[in-house]
């Protein structure tokens, strides 16, 4: 069993009227199966309202499944006594950088998690330093979060999770509110944690560019996993992605359009380097 495993996971938002009778039931996650191996970089794609955030919150036991089972490192998230272990194993970073930083000084915020876990003081400081270093924010340790850019704030939030020494980080649209530079900063920090420290990453996003380097992609729509596979497999299905309110990176779209117009290009081109090489090959063959 992988570090995270979900079997027929269902989550329903139940609305009740004033008397407590059920008013409406909305199924946000609908029979989802997941199996994530330790050290993987997983991307979950989906448009706003596709149920991907609800799924993310279950990975951290912030929401408990209505049906089905979710195991984080073999521990069922439904059991109350597992909650703390689940949250230590799978840390979570949220969308809005301002609304997850608790302290008014960077290093104090990073120390918040370890404090909650009752880590001894000396060990906290060691962890704070290490995790700030791992996201390249050590030199801002005494700064106020208010003076940082969006990308820097998100890196502080990631450090705050890293200080709890998780095996896995779940990031729920961490770049949705950032500018392109901030987005790059956060993404490269996350990739580095995955590469250097072997942290399992589950990145939830609707930016297609962020999924190109993933080990495996899940696409969600209406609470269900509607596509899954390697980036190449997913991005070769341009029409299918568009049906789920998503798109593809520009290079992939152009390759797809050219192929449709008759050029002999392979499926699933992800980067412009690949496309340039393939086009050159076509061109050489053509001019011969």
């Amino acid at each position: 069993m992988g570090i995270i495993k979900a079997s027929k996971l269902v989550f329903e938002y139940i609305r009740r009227d004033e008397e407590g009778n059920v008013d409406s039931i909305q199924t946000a996650v609908d029979h989802v199966d997941l199996d994530v191996n330790e050290g993987d970089f997983i991307v979950i794609l989906g448009h706003n309202g596709s149920g991907k955030s609800t799924l993310a919150k279950q990975l951290n036991a912030l929401l408990i499944p209505s049906e089905g089972t979710l195991w984080v490192e073999g521990k069922d998230t439904k059991e109350r006594e597992n909650v703390r272990d689940v949250r230590r194993t799978a840390g979570m970073v949220f969308q809005n950088p301002d609304n997850q930083i608790i302290a008014s000084v960077v290093e104090e915020d990073v120390g918040f998690g370890p404090e909650n876990l009752g880590v001894p003081t000396e060990e906290i400081w060691k962890r704070v330093e290490e995790s700030l270093t791992s996201v390249g924010m050590l030199k801002f340790r005494r700064h106020s979060p208010n003076k940082l850019s969006g990308g820097q704030k998100q890196r502080v939030a990631i450090a705050g999770v890293m200080a709890m020494e998780p095996k896995c980080i779940v990031l729920d649209e961490p770049t949705a509110m950032l500018d392109p530079n901030g987005r790059r900063e956060v993404l490269s920090a996350v990739h580095e944690l995955n590469r250097k420290k072997g942290i399992t990453v589950i990145l939830i996003t609707h930016y297609m560019e962020e999924a190109v380097d993933a080990d495996y992609i899940y696409v969600m729509d209406e609470g269900k996993v509607v596509m899954e596979g390697l980036p190449k497999e997913i991005f070769s299905q341009v029409e299918e992605l568009k049906r789920h309110r998503l798109d593809v990176p520009q290079a992939t779209l152009l390759a797809y359009e050219l192929k449709k117009a008759g050029l002999p290009l392979p499926d699933g081109i992800l980067t412009r380097q690949e496309l340039a090489e393939e086009l050159e090959r076509c061109y050489v063959n053509y001019t011969k």
Binding site: H47, N48, A176, M177, H206, M208, K242, R245, L246, D247
Partner: peptide
């Protein structure tokens, strides 16, 4: 800002 690809288009 913050919209998904379809919403953006």
């Amino acid at each position: 800002a913050g919209l998904d690809p379809k919403g953006r288009d």
